[in-house]
Design a protein around this nucleic acid. Structure first.
Length: 359
DNA sequence: AATGCGGGGAG
DNA sequence: CTCCCAGCATT
């Protein structure tokens, strides 16, 4: 803990640094709680640069809560396509309906009420209340956790359990009457100065208070998480009828829920690509394959694994019997109406080059 | 406490 | 290649 006088100095230096150095970002130029909410959801585990174009487009398509609550889920997911963590979009959509139906279209300003809404965890609840309504809630996110760990010299992994150690310290520095500015300042410092790699300690307004800088361990804090990246091979079938392609809808739970994809799946141990393709098409469509030809191969990286998609154009022996709720025949231009994972988008780009009429 | 959940960019 | 990013929900 810092002495009273040091606390004052800390706060003044942090806020002054923020006034002179912060980025102008669209969600900082507004007081509209809805816009701030949208930005907070999009920014979860997602960089500012990635979010910016999605944010602008979203507000154009869904300018207010009412509009969002009335939009079909597929339209909402399409606007989110490529942003990842699709549960966020579904929660945003669900919460908008609850706010319209139960809260007169206004975002609740009570902490417990707000946190009970889908997608509002501890961070987002405090962030919206602080940024939109200047309510006195400190936020804890990846940036602030890292800054706090360095200030305290905690040389360990950035696990949620360190929050318990940091909380009393950060709370003692918090400025309840300047809640919004304080939270923004701390996060911005983490993003611009106290970065994960190559922190600019020489420019840091808090250098004097930093245990890690004092001991030269800033690069060692937090300790990196060990990741084991798996490699996955998958096949998918491009099934063409007239000018249409067959796509299917993913389940509503789990990975990339409610998005659309081409039929197919993982290649199992000891299986050839062709064997996997025949097996998956038989499982999913109940049809055998007459002839197949490998069209393209795309790779796509996820946090936990890297997948290689082998796309086969194939002809079926039997016409499959399909449920229109989960399977559709769509033309090249109709792909625009369906949300796909980014790996599939790459395959669609290839199909467009191959089959577009102007070529 | 641990895991699942995307995708992109920096170094 | 590696790691991380304005986290949440579920177990």
């Amino acid at each position: 803990m810092l002495e009273k006088e040091d606390q004052r100095e800390f706060q003044e230096k942090l806020l002054r640094w923020y006034r002179h150095n912060h980025r102008k970002l669209p969600w900082r130029e507004t007081q509209d709680p809805y816009k701030i909410w949208v930005s907070e959801i999009m920014l979860q585990q997602t960089t500012v640069q990635t979010v910016l174009p999605y944010y602008r487009n979203w507000l154009k398509q869904f300018p207010d809560i009412q509009t969002l609550s009335q939009a079909p889920l597929q339209t909402v997911l399409k606007a989110w396509e490529g942003l990842g963590y699709y549960q966020r979009a579904k929660n945003l959509h669900r919460a908008s309906k609850i706010i319209v139906e139960k809260h007169q279209g206004q975002i609740p300003q009570n902490y417990e009420t707000l946190q009970s809404l889908p997608g509002f965890g501890p961070y987002t609840t405090a962030a919206v209340l602080s940024f939109a309504f200047n309510k006195p809630y400190p936020v804890m996110d990846g940036n602030i956790r890292r800054v706090g760990m360095r200030l305290k010299g905690l040389q360990m992994e950035a696990k949620p359990s360190v929050d318990k150690q940091l909380k009393p310290f950060l709370t003692s520095l918090f400025l309840p009457r300047k809640s919004s500015d304080f939270n923004q300042s701390f996060m911005e410092l983490g993003a611009l100065v106290c970065r994960p790699q190559n922190p600019s300690c020489l420019l840091c307004p808090l250098q004097k208070f930093c245990q890690a800088f004092r001991s030269g361990t800033q690069e060692l804090i937090p300790q990196p998480k060990k990741m084991n990246l798996q490699k996955i091979q998958a096949v998918l079938g491009i099934i063409k009828k007239d000018h249409c392609f067959l796509i299917q809808k993913r389940p509503s739970q789990g990975l990339m829920a409610d998005l659309w994809e081409f039929p197919g799946g993982k290649i199992k141990e000891g299986e050839t690509r062709e064997e996997a393709l025949h097996r998956e098409i038989k499982e999913e469509l109940g049809s055998r394959i007459q002839k197949e030809k490998c069209l393209t191969r795309v790779t796509h990286s996820y946090t936990q694994f890297r997948v290689t998609l082998h796309a086969f154009e194939c002809e079926l022996k039997e016409k499959p019997v399909l449920n229109p709720q989960t399977h559709r025949w769509v033309t090249l231009s109709e792909f625009e109406n369906y949300p796909f994972p980014s790996g599939s988008v790459k395959v669609i780009q290839c199909l467009k080059k191959r089959y577009s009429p102007q070529k």
